[in-house]
Design a protein around this nucleic acid. Sequence first.
RNA 1: GCCGAAGUGGCGGAACUGGCAGACGCGCUGGACUCAAAAUCCAGUCUGGCUCACACCAGGUGCGGGUUCGACUCCCGCCUUCGGCACCA
Length: 836
Amino acid sequence: MLYTSLVGGNSMEYKFTEIEKKWQQRWDEEKAFKRLEDPNKEKYYMLEMFPYPSGNLHMGHVRNYSIGDVIARFKTMQGYNVLHPMGWDSFGLPAENAAIERGIHPDTWTNSNIDTMRQQLKGLGLSYDWDREVATSSPSYYKWTQWLFLQFFKKGMAYKKISSVNWCPSCETVLANEQVVNGGCERCSAQVDKKELEQWFFKITDYAERLLQDIDKLDGWPEKVKIMQQNWIGKSEGAMVNFTIEGTEEKIAVFTTRPDTIYGVSFMVLAPEHPLVLELVKGTEYEEAAKEFRKKAEHMSEIDRTSTEGEKEGLFLGRYVINPMNGQRVPLFIANYVLMDYGTGAVMGVPAHDQRDFEFATKYNLPIIPVIKPKNDEIDIDNLDRAFEAEGIMINSGPFNGLDNQEGIAKIIEYMEEKGIGESKVNYRLRDWLISRQRYWGAPIPIIYCDKCGTVPVPEEDLPVILPTDVKISGKGNSPLATSESFVNTTCPECGAAAKREVDTMDTFVCSSFYYLRYTDPKNDQHPFEMDKTKYWMPVDQYVGGVEHAILHLLYARFFTKVLYDMGLSPVDEPFSNLLTQGMVLKDGHKMSKSLGNTVSPEEIIAKYGADTARLFILFAAPPERDLEWSDQGVEGSFRFLNRIWRLVTESINEIHIDNMVDTGKLSSQDKELRFVLHNTIKRITNDISQRFNFNTAVSALMELVNAIYDYREKCKNGKLNNAVLSDAITCLLIMLAPFCPHITSELWEMIGREDSIHDQKWPQWDEEALVKDQVEIVVQVNGKLRDRLMISTQATKEEIEKAALGLDKIQELTSAKDIVKVIVVPKRLVNIVIK
RNA sequence: GCCGAAGUGGCGGAACUGGCAGACGCGCUGGACUCAAAAUCCAGUCUGGCUCACACCAGGUGCGGGUUCGACUCCCGCCUUCGGCACCA
């Protein structure tokens, strides 16, 4: 044997550091978790969201990866061919900040972080196939990010348009929303402006309807995530109507979900950024005010602007528009609560039936014209104190009066289409995905601009477009790549003339939108992934990650999968069959953060108690989808439990006979009781892990089993101990604990004389026979209050149970002077006697 | 603000389909072992009342209502805390 056993001499201490090192080394050398396609085995793809290599593992990672590891190991023991990969989402802002603040190159910083964190992950004993490791910042990966961009471009799914970014005038740089604090720059506090730039977008809106419809396919996703995605896509049905600007031929298109209220329009509002605004006020007395108003609105966050609580501010533009339904002339405003990004950036104001319009009209003294009245006349429709937004009957609406408003919607749209003033329209809240980033540390967008040929994609054979190293990362200016002359200046792939490269890089969400596909074929340098591989492994059977990704990452990944499916590159159109969104790790009720000084480092915990204890605690302390409160004392409790198991096995080593089979014909009552607890535990844990992911209750069940084994040993001290029963219980205990605590169980497995690996064992099956009890306790209630209990045969009929309950002394006492109205009998549970 | 969650002992949590509220663990109290301590083991631990004690009685799952023989669980209305809000990942 290559490895010396740690049980030597007299020491029976649980030496977790040595044990963990020994097994981790062995798994590494043996590549114990390397997996290939195997057509004879059913596959299971277990995936956890890959981390950003920030420098050190934190408790959130430990939680995420411990959950994934339990599932992966459990599924392996159930006989599946389990793919369990790990990698790095290694492009991003912090690497650039490190470069600016400490002068380290992002590449150096990132790679050293990856090395540290890989070691830390290995220190947790996670069952990854490390041969599949990917890093999105490596050229061999971002080559495919770029290649996929080109495919999107060819399909017309990637396009450029003007869009605004946060701009700090003092730092002269683009800021992420996160870097804007209370309207100011996080570094210098200068007030942040908006700047218009031409940027790349992916047409996710083309897929809005499918992304919405296919939510129905996601049976294994939490309802709350599905609802969040549905709301994010925000489908609404209504009409597009054209209002003409008085004195011109110009028309303003408006989207409304309530065409039935169009006769109630008393004003119209444009977003301050609407392209018509400056044109309309040019040279008028309103010009200055409008410009100023626009600037002010730009400084407001979208959250403040759309808040229904905030003050609605508007400005009259001195112009009027004509309501196409009745020819009515209504004033035109701009207002902060109208967003350019939603619909057409223009809103028809119907104060009687929309609360925001109501508030606006009240403030600016605009008429409130009711056009829907409630069916029951409960509300005085001519003197509203707030908008009436419910269903009703149409009034003041010319030929449509008297119609039910739902019917009115259809009739009005029909009329508009006939007259050419409007049409039926479905609108989505979802906007196209802006992927351009004015940053260095990302995948360069593979586009070349030629004076003659225009926008030319980089030929696929020239990929990857390598990130240059001669770049000044100063945190100033638009795009750092523009400072590298060797990068920017190139030749046009079509005509050979001098040309310039695109200097923006891609959003990191692009990189993380296909990594789960790349894992199936991570080393392929001819294709992003091959169908024979993706067909075997996809879809991901179980995806685990933080709930904070419920919308963006998960929606983008779904979008990518659908586009790739349509291109014939993916065998599935939904990437993740089952999703588990895990809660955060808190300390003292708050998220762990450096600024709060309440962090606990995984390394410290591992050094003090070992990885098995850390994993066990984090799985035991709370169910996975809930937030978890960190407790140092709780960790000690988990450590004590492992010590208790260590002692149980090492002290019983002479009684454990691994080859003995349990003879069910010769069992004492103690034997039967232990077997009942064992098989009940197997049943509970199997269900807890596979059906509910409630690892906390699974661990409790293991603790109860350990308590039961201790009890059994105590009770059978004087020679009554059945070695086979005890051995069976201990073996099953170790097997069931193995996915949670892989090191200690491996060590004990070896100590009881097994030469194979515990992680290759079959997951135990429970025996229903062992769970059959002859007697069961039944609760007896009177008027729903617990009054007594009785033991009765599990075979007893409802009548027998009722009779037994009514015969109890205590029940007789309580019921003798009263009328028994009803008796409810729930077999094996309770009897409730209703008296008067 | 909008969207989505969560609230149960001193603490983390359990109660799976409407059927014994508080499993399991932590902490605390008492005891055993020890010269002593640590470790370990045993017992107790929702609140109030009554009792030497066993028992018994009443109340109790954020707050206020409702449905039901029976509600932590279902319905209506609030309160508090947390997550997301499109350039953090």
